[in-house]
Design a protein around this nucleic acid. Sequence first.
DNA 1: TAGTTTGCTTGCATTCCGCAAGTGACATTC
DNA 2: GAATGTCACTTGCGGAATGCAAGCAAACTA
Lengths: 143, 143
Amino acid sequence: MPQRSSRAARSGCPISIALEQLGDPWSLLIVRDLMFTGLRTFNGFLRAGEGIASNILSDRLDRLESSGLLTKRRDRTDARRFVYRLTAKGMDLAPVLVDIILWSAKHGPTDAPPATVREMRRRRTRFLRRVRARWTHPGTRAA
Amino acid sequence: MPQRSSRAARSGCPISIALEQLGDPWSLLIVRDLMFTGLRTFNGFLRAGEGIASNILSDRLDRLESSGLLTKRRDRTDARRFVYRLTAKGMDLAPVLVDIILWSAKHGPTDAPPATVREMRRRRTRFLRRVRARWTHPGTRAA
DNA sequence: TAGTTTGCTTGCATTCCGCAAGTGACATTC
DNA sequence: GAATGTCACTTGCGGAATGCAAGCAAACTA
């Protein structure tokens, strides 16, 4: 278990604090998968992501869990499997992710559906409310 | 000049695209210094930051410039010095940074002044307008 | 012109990362 | 119930990135 000793407690700056938990190329992608897609298992992240290595994924899931961004529980129907789920703290990253999506979509071509991007921009708070509702009441797979 | 070959063009996901440009522990801190503090020079970033090494800073400035997030010009009054400045694309990260600050301030103690955090949360668009105005008309050092 | 400042660059040791291969617990199939 | 497959990792290894200290040329200052 590699330690992130050099990155710990650099300063009290809120941005620096956030980067200690999310300042790498992978953590936010895992949060994205948990928030916007239905992915909740190890192999789900492995395959549907951008090609993260399994050891890195394992390490990032541990860090995100110890940062309080997600929880890890055994699947009830399959004891091999773990179910990863965003905490409220992790869910509170939704505005950040939405702004990042809007920023990327504004400054270059992306795969994000233009209709969704437009909705994010024009009905930002409503979009965030819906994402949160889907998290509170899972199973509601909104378009 | 180390290359970020392995991180290039992982997918068309807008979050992945953003992380290719900002997905490390330092880039966003440089953007923060440019956006919220008056820092614009190499040694300014070096000293006021969280202790970035000079070679890393040099590399990150190059990357941010080639990503179109900042510009680099000679200082007119001191030809040794370069002046780094956010582009419009870099400035468009302001909503992201504000959301990150709000997220950090909500989930733990930070050094951010509570009054500023409250203003960011309650008058978000006005706060963003002011940050942008200070960028458009430099010299206006608002509190 | 001697000395300082500025923005890097270079060497080097340490750490991190991606890839491939393995492992043990569990599930499925026959 | 034995063979096979799945799941969530773990390990080994080579290469890349990082942090630290030192050095450097150009430009400014005394």
